[in-house]
Design a protein around this nucleic acid. Structure first.
Lengths: 162, 162
DNA sequence: CGTTGATGTTTGCGCGAACAACTTTCTACA
DNA sequence: TGTAGAAAGTTGTTCGCGCAAACATCAACG
């Protein structure tokens, strides 16, 4: 009679609520450090990449932002001195975004509080077994909805495949 | 040495990737039906509420949108005839957003594909036990990060508490 | 009954992101 | 080698959203 209370809708709504609610809590620490969520996402992706650098389009692939969005984010971060652009030696169309010393420092200052936030609002709520199971499930879904989430990671080591 | 590969960062990143990746897939069906994700979220919240209606501010509370955002979403949906505003008889400041017949129809037409999408990208990837465990974990987190997610649900039945 | 503060909703403004068009450079193929 | 098409990145435009202010109404208190 009422098709609007299907358990699949509830499940999906729950996932969305958790994700946005968690992001809202964690975002407080970002803005206290003068960063938006997108800024942090960009910086941390760079920090976790080899040589602290990533091509603009790979950055776009990893962060669900469009390439024009990445252009502007990197513009902002470059203006603040947290990132710099570096030309790619083998492809003159491409640029790398590279984390600067200041960018590393900003992240380093931010991360302890961020990790504490993750504990408070997420990991400490679960037993280690619960957490492990949860992450395993997330990986299962991730591998299907995000087959290319590692763009630029392995290809950075096989330059010819770019 | 490198504090940027903490497992908590990975865990949080995984959750964010799954949520945004899933939203991106499901969003294709929404836009095929001429709706944005926010539109759908708004309509489905109304559909799942008693009498298919909700006060503007309760709608804002349920959807991580600001009240001004809700004003504009309802403006758009009202222009399309999917929702109408209805004054509250007991408080002349308040308005209800009410799903119209056309709104119900639009949702009803959309939902079969949406449910299939959720199956394809989410629930069918897991065993029933995995899914149940996953949802249980999500609820645990939700109860902490979103203590007021049910705004307007129970209060709609005790009008005096509004 | 009038005043003060709180609450619900809407509007002015500015920012941030997507889309599409454009420039430059690369790759493939003849 | 020269040309066609693809790919990387940037820019113009538009639109959605949050913030703060404004407006209307309510509740409490004298």
């Amino acid at each position: 009679m009422d098709p609007f209370d299907d358990p699949r809708l509830t499940a999906m709504g729950l996932l969305a609520e958790v994700s946005t609610g968690l992001a809202a809590e964690l975002g407080k620490t970002f803005s206290a450090a003068g960063l938006s969520e997108v800024d942090f996402e960009t910086l941390i992706r760079l920090a976790r990449s080899p040589r602290h650098q990533l091509r603009m389009s790979d950055l776009a692939g990893q962060t669900s932002l469009s390439t024009s969005g990445i252009t502007r984010v990197v513009d902002r971060l470059e203006r603040e001195g947290l990132v710099r652009r570096s030309p790619c030696s083998t492809d003159r169309r491409a640029s790398y975004a590279v984390l600067t010393e200041a960018g590393v420092n900003r992240l380093t200052a931010l991360i302890p509080q961020h990790l504490e936030d993750i504990d408070t609002w997420f990991t400490s709520l679960l037993t280690p077994e619960q957490l492990a199971t949860f992450l395993e499930t997330l990986r299962t879904i991730r591998d299907v909805v995000r087959p290319c989430a590692t763009a630029g990671v392995e290809s950075a080591e096989h330059v010819a495949t770019g």
